[in-house]
């Protein structure tokens, strides 16, 4: 293999700085889960088809399984572990609990990160648009109604910045 030299990659994850020596074939998802022990970000397909691995990179929602860790050198990453502030849940996290927007919980971190990114994008104005723009995040338990209800509540309430 020609690729087995590690690259030093600087990531700021949830406000903490990390310098990782990673091989270029390591996805951001695997770097988070295996190297930083941030297992809140989930692997559901590893092919960008399910959305479970969604994180915020420099404020934008990205699929961490389709992102190599080395590509994000110098970036600020927010994972589900960094969404609550000092034990204080984000309004969307609270709304997810209240609306029972999950069952098994495995797609939940991706739904929440994607939802926060989606709300910031400001493109969704109606319930239908929210559902459409969240359709990259699969939920096999079928919690769609609770998920969209939670997002609509937070969207209408403002307070998600």
């Amino acid at each position: 293999m020609e690729t087995n030299t590690t690259h030093t990659t600087s990531l700021r994850v949830n406000g903490a700085d990390y310098r990782l020596d990673v091989l270029p074939w390591v996805s951001l998802l695997d770097a988070l889960r295996e190297k930083l022990n941030l297992t809140g970000t989930k692997k559901g397909c590893d092919h960008g088809q399910c959305g479970a691995c969604t994180v915020l990179a420099d404020g934008k929602r990205v699929l961490s399984c389709l992102t190599l860790a080395v590509m994000k050198d110098g970036s600020e990453i927010t994972t589900i572990e960094g969404i609550a502030q000092n034990e204080q849940l984000h309004p969307l996290q609270k709304a997810f609990i209240e609306h029972d927007a999950f069952q098994c919980g495995y797609c939940t971190p991706g739904q929440i990160c994607s939802g926060i990114g989606m709300l910031k994008e400001g493109r969704a104005h109606t319930r239908e648009e929210v559902a459409e723009l969240m359709s990259g995040n699969l939920c096999r338990c079928g919690a769609s109604k609770g998920i969209i209800d939670a997002l609509m509540e937070v969207k209408e309430g403002g307070g998600y910045e």
Binding site: T41, I80, E98
Partner: peptide
């Protein structure tokens, strides 16, 4: 509401 809800929405 699910008693494990907090763990599921915070990634723990």
């Amino acid at each position: 509401s699910r008693l494990e809800g907090r763990q599921k929405v915070t990634g723990s």
